[in-house]
């Protein structure tokens, strides 16, 4: 019997699932925090993909780990920045609903 944990496609499909879940959440969430959380899901899917290619295809297994660590660093910086954005927006509009923050709405 073929082992699923030793098959590249299992990991790639998991990465696709994380990406799609992130896209779904990004569109249908009704608050900035929910959208930020969905973005984290997308970045996590990218990390899973890089690690899968690193394990099965890459000539040097350090490369994928390096890229995944960079993704983690970028995600941490992005979360800090966006939370402070949310703080500033909440201070000005008293709301974290994207539908209510529409001063520049055309």
């Amino acid at each position: 019997m073929m082992m699923l944990s030793n098959n590249l496609n299992t990991y790639l499909i998991l990465g696709v699932f994380l990406l799609v879940a992130g896209i779904y959440g990004l569109i249908q969430h009704k608050s900035f925090i929910g959208m930020l959380v969905s973005t984290e899901l997308v970045l996590n899917g990218a990390g899973v993909n890089f690690m899968a290619f690193n394990r099965f295809l890459a000539p040097d297994p350090a490369v994928g780990q390096v890229i995944t660590l960079f993704i983690m660093g970028i995600a941490a910086a992005e979360a800090a920045i966006v939370v402070s954005f949310i703080l500033a927006v909440f201070r000005r509009y008293q709301s974290i609903d994207p539908n209510e923050v529409k001063e520049l709405h055309g």
Binding site: S31, I33, L36, V37, E40, A75, A76, A79, A80, V82, V83, I86, L87, F90, Q94, S95, I96
Partner: peptide
């Protein structure tokens, strides 16, 4: 780290 930052964000406007 990131989940704690997100909880801080929730504490602000929620």
């Amino acid at each position: 780290a990131i989940c704690i930052v997100l909880v801080f964000g929730i504490m602000v406007g929620y």
